[in-house]
Amino acid sequence: MAHEHKLEIFRGLVKFKSNTQKIWGVLIFLSIVTAIEVVLGIYKPEWSMAQVLGMKLLNWIFIILTIVKAYYITWDFMHMRDETKGLRRAVVWTTIFLILYLIFILLQEGGYVFKVYDEGFIKRDF
């Protein structure tokens, strides 16, 4: 198990000859993503300021790019790609489910508290 690696990324679009080569490939990809994030963060283009689902488009782009990076770190550096389905799901699904739940609860509540402050401590006026 430990010595065999799946050597393709992007669903087989890019194939590597050896594990070492794949590592450098993933590094280049992660560096490009980070560079895009930094450039967007410095210049903040006008089009990215549009509001999408309660947040700036730029912030959504940052979050999505972060998750993309996290995926490649976990799958290729931590070799999740080579683990069995059972282990992968036990680790990934559990974590993702709990984190989504936590984020939803806390951000929802934070927004509520903001509104209460903002609207003169009245949330519902009967």
Partner: peptide
């Protein structure tokens, strides 16, 4: 395997902190 499950619990700890940060930020969003 135990290293993986330790990582799961540590990831949850960190996401707890970051979500708390998100809470405070949303509370003072303006």
């Amino acid at each position: 395997m135990m290293m993986w499950f330790f990582i799961v619990s540590d990831a949850l700890t960190f996401s707890g902190f970051l979500a708390a940060y998100g809470f405070s930020r949303f509370k003072f969003i303006s």
